[in-house]
Amino acid sequence: METVTAKKTMLECVNLKKAYPTPKGDFVVLEDFQLKIKEEEFISIIGHSGCGKSTLLTMIAGLNDITEGNIIVDANRIQGAGPDRAVVFQSPSLFPWMTAMENVMIGVKQVFAHGTKKQREDICKYYLDKVGLGDSFHQRASSLSQGMQQRVGIARAFALKPKVLLLDEPFGMLDSMTRVELQDVLIDVWAKEKITAVMVTHDVDEAILLSDRVIMMTGGPYAKVGDVAHIEIERPRHRKTTIEDPRFYEYRQYLLNFLDH
């Protein structure tokens, strides 16, 4: 805990509010929402469907307007979307007409505009290799399986070297086998990069396995932070040792209890 508290705040939501205007008056999704995330922290947000957790994530990404309040990333108020907040979307959202390599490259080109072509290619290759696509650089995205596409999605996000990594139910569309594989990939890559991350998920096990903190949101409308669980299982984590840790089941029970209410 000591080491974490010494780190600077990377992402902060202050008095955040999101309302959608309807004919019957505003529909308030989030109100008076506060959140502080330190550098190199991995947090998960769980809650029932429709509680506004995805809305929160798209607001941080800058893809959704903020009704009131502020979102501050690395001491700057955010203005629209940008590569400093990379997003891994629920559907892989690759450009199907490009190869895996080109899909990563198009982002890398934006961020490392000054590098040489060789340097940029090396960055792409490094991350594609890390997510296990070392021999599929030049395959078209449309010919890759869903799981492989999402691997490219993860590589694309990390390759941007963002300040904050946003994951919007990144494994929600995958079958359970592929999901386990990709969670392992994410644990490994994140352990090397330690990029501040916010992940929205439905899956309690996934949240505990990956996060330092799990934020539990109350049901919407007027959603806010209901409870917070600090996951103190040591890093680097591995699926097997983490699941065998007796604390894993305590956290699991705690989170499930919250969600049952």
């Binding site: 590569p83 979307f89 198009i106």
Partner: peptide
């Protein structure tokens, strides 16, 4: 597809 537009926005193309 709005997902493509979102990616394009995040990458600030």
């Amino acid at each position: 597809n709005p997902d493509y537009i979102n990616v394009s926005k995040v990458l600030r193309l």
